[in-house]
């Protein structure tokens, strides 16, 4: 499964670094490094909300504090 986090300037200001680090930690803790490809991308053109994250074609809008919930409800159910 490929998860892509926007690391453009706007998402940087909204906390993309924290989102990236939290996702990396959750992937490691859940022993999912072989199953999840985490990568970054530049602006997805959807800068209105939070940090843009995609799973496949589906876009999510995250904050650092909602990342754990995103992982539990959206990532784990797709594994």
């Amino acid at each position: 499964m490929k998860i892509t986090v926007c690391i453009g300037s706007s998402c940087h200001l909204k906390g993309s670094r924290e989102v990236v680090e939290e996702l990396q930690q959750l992937i490691a803790e859940n022993d999912l490094k072989d199953k999840i490809d985490l990568c970054g991308t530049f602006c997805m053109g959807n800068c209105v909300n939070g940090v843009n994250v995609t799973i496949g074609e589906e876009i999510f809008s995250l904050k650092p504090e909602t990342t754990k919930n995103f992982f539990d409800t959206q990532v784990l159910k797709r594994i």
Binding site: I7, H12, R17, V20, E21, Q24, K33, L38, C39
Partner: peptide
């Protein structure tokens, strides 16, 4: 300072 992320992989991150 590890502030600005410029590249991400599952097991590594590049900061500027």
């Amino acid at each position: 300072k590890l502030q600005k992320v410029i590249a991400v992989r599952t097991s590594k991150t590049v900061y500027r």
